[in-house]
Structures are given as C-alpha cells and as structure tokens.
C-alpha cells in the first residue's frame, strides 16, 4: 500500500453531545496532528466510542465543530467522510468472503476491476492474510478477523483511521503481537490514527499522544511520559499507573485545597530518626524486582516500592521507618 499523499490533521472544538437528557460529551476540544497515532483512553462509559462515532459521522453533536484537514465535516454523511473505522465487533459481513469484504469499499468507489483486485491483494498481504482470501469470516480466528477488518478499512486508503478497542476480543498474548503490528502498519502508512482503549498499557505502548477522558470530558492530553510525570489532576494520576494521594490528615504539610501525589517508586525508606515523615510498616509484598511496603502516615497509608537486591535487608511489619521523598517528585494537585 502506498503512503497517502499527505496525512491530515483533526481539529475538534467546543463539542457537546447529548442523547436525550444524558450529556455524553462535554466541551471537547482536541487537536490531532497529521500522521499521529493518537489514543482516547478512559474508563467504560466515558464517551470514547461516542467521540469516535462523531468523527465518523454516526453521531451528531449539538454544538461544536469537527475539522478534517481544516474542513468542517458536519455537512458530510458518513459515506462521504473518507474516515476508515474499525468497529469493536469488527462488523465483518458474514455473507461475503474475506476478499469480498475487503473489496467492498473499493467497489463502492467504482474502481476498475483490475485496480480492485490489486489493492485487495495488497491489503491482505499487508495484514498477512493472503492465504485466507476465499474464506468466510466465520472460518477465521478472532485475531484474523480483526486483521481483515483493518485490511478492509485501509484498502480504501482513508484520510484517517479510527480503531474502536480493536484488541478487546483477543487473548493477552495475541493482544501484544497485534498491537505491535498495528503500530508498524501505521508507521508504514503514515496514517493519522485514533485508537480507543480503556487499557493504559495499550495506550502507553503504541501511541504518540493520549487524551485521557472521564465523564464525557477530556482530562488531559499529552505523551504517555508527560501524563505519567505531570498528571494534570487526580483522575489522570490515578488512571495512569499507581499513585499515592495524601491529604492534610496524613500529617504532611499540604496547601489547602490540594493533595500531595507521588509514585510508589519515587519514595525511599530511611531510618526513622532522621526523616520528616515516619510511621510503621503495615504490610510487605515481594514482587520480584521490587518490594512493596505499606507505610502508615498519620491517618493515611502509602505504598512504597524499593528495588530488591539479593542479600539486602528487608523491613518487617511493625518496624518504624522513615519515608524520604525528594521535593522534585512531589506533585500538588487540586483536590
């Protein structure tokens, strides 16, 4: 498959969408760069699918705009948007063979037969399913079906690729290999891609940038590292990796209306006498590379992970320990 002539960007601004009295999308504003692999990440029901469907033209917003390549798509029906969507359920047509499924969009575009055959072969080649062209979808495994769905979508060389939880029906091992394939494919095609998931690991490993969503709002947009290091709020801090969140009842001085946030591996245990924060060990878990301790601070409890070296001495439950937290690792976020 040839690289599209030019990748396009997506600009979303001021979008509000309600189904009846349920306000599903609230003041969505997003800017997705050309050629970017972008993720919508958030818990179930936060509106990820709805936002994707809005871009594809299957949902109508009450306010706001969606610009594709600088053009407002509101007047365009789904079949004129040139936005390829891979459905969560794959939505392969059971009455057509794999090849027919992939050829569908090309036939709708009235391409000459030879061109269609060539591009179907190419798309199937790309997803490694050339040998399965004459099978029916029901005769394929879940992972193969998913790749057919991708092939069907990229065969039309869309401006944008939308993937709605494409890995959710695969087993854990398959998930890792398919997501690598997806990433490689996206890189090869240079296609602007949006990937919907509620699995942070999935988003972190393959996406350039992530929009974290909750309750119909975008909480923060950034690269996986930015989100991890500089979460904008407690939700993001909690959703990406584990975080200790402390309020003033912990005995730690915290500005009013704020919470102290830090990652378990950023704190270290020290001798209680010299430390500003101290308390008893409440539990201990051995995780292999690290050891995780629970330490009581005032009325709160924090988790602290320390690297494990063989021979090093471990603390026991009940031991008084000090907690060392470098100031640059302390985040104060609005409650």
């Amino acid at each position: 498959m040839s690289k599209p002539a030019r990748a396009v960007g997506i600009e979303i601004s001021g979008v509000n969408l309600s189904y009846g009295s349920t306000h599903v999308l609230k003041d969505i504003a997003l800017s997705i760069r050309p050629g970017e692999f972008f993720a919508f990440l958030g818990p179930s029901g936060c509106g990820k699918t709805t936002l994707l469907r809005l871009i594809a033209g299957f949902a109508q917003a009450q306010t706001g705009q969606v610009l594709l390549d600088g053009q407002d798509v509101a007047p365009l029906p789904p079949w004129k948007r040139d936005v390829g969507m891979v459905f969560q359920s794959y939505a392969l047509w059971p009455h057509m063979t794999v090849a027919k499924n992939v050829a569908f969009g090309l036939e709708e575009r009235r391409l000459p037969r030879g061109e269609i055959d060539r591009r179907v072969a190419q798309a199937l080649e790309l997803v490694g399913l050339s040998a399965f062209a004459e099978r029916r979808p029901a005769q394929l495994s879940g992972g193969q079906q998913q790749r057919v769905a991708v092939a069907r979508t990229i065969a039309i060389e869309p401006k944008v690729l939308l993937l709605d939880e494409p890995l959710s029906n695969l087993d854990a091992k398959m998930r890792v290999s398919v997501r690598r394939e997806l990433r490689a494919l996206q890189q090869r095609l240079g296609l602007t891609t949006i990937f919907v998931t509620h699995d942070q690991e999935e988003a972190n490993t393959i996406c350039d940038r992530i929009a974290v969503m909750d309750g119909g709002k975008i909480q923060q947009v950034g690269t996986p590292m930015e989100l991890y290091e500089h979460p904008a709020n407690l939700f993001v801090a909690n959703f990406l990796g584990s975080a200790n969140i402390l309020d003033e009842k912990s005995g730690v001085p915290i500005p009013p209306g704020k919470r102290l946030v830090f990652r378990p591996q950023h704190a270290a245990l020290s001798a209680p006498e010299s430390a500003a924060l101290r308390g008893p060990v409440t539990h201990r878990e051995f995780l292999g590379a690290t050891v995780r301790y629970g330490v009581r601070l005032g009325e709160s409890e924090v988790l602290i992970e320390t690297p494990f070296q063989s021979g090093s001495e471990l603390r026991s439950v009940g031991d008084q320990v000090g907690v060392d937290l470098p100031p640059r690792r302390m985040l104060f976020l609005p409650a």
Binding site: A56, G57, F58, P77, P78, W79, K80, D82, V83, G84, M85, F87, A91, L92, W93, F104, G105, E108, R109, R152, T153, I156
Partner: peptide
C-alpha cells in the same frame, strides 16, 4: 450497516 456506510456505501 455502519461499516458499509463508513466504506462509502449508502
């Protein structure tokens, strides 16, 4: 049906 619309059919 939506998949078909998405691929340009209507």
């Amino acid at each position: 049906e939506e998949a078909a619309q998405n691929l340009g059919s209507h």
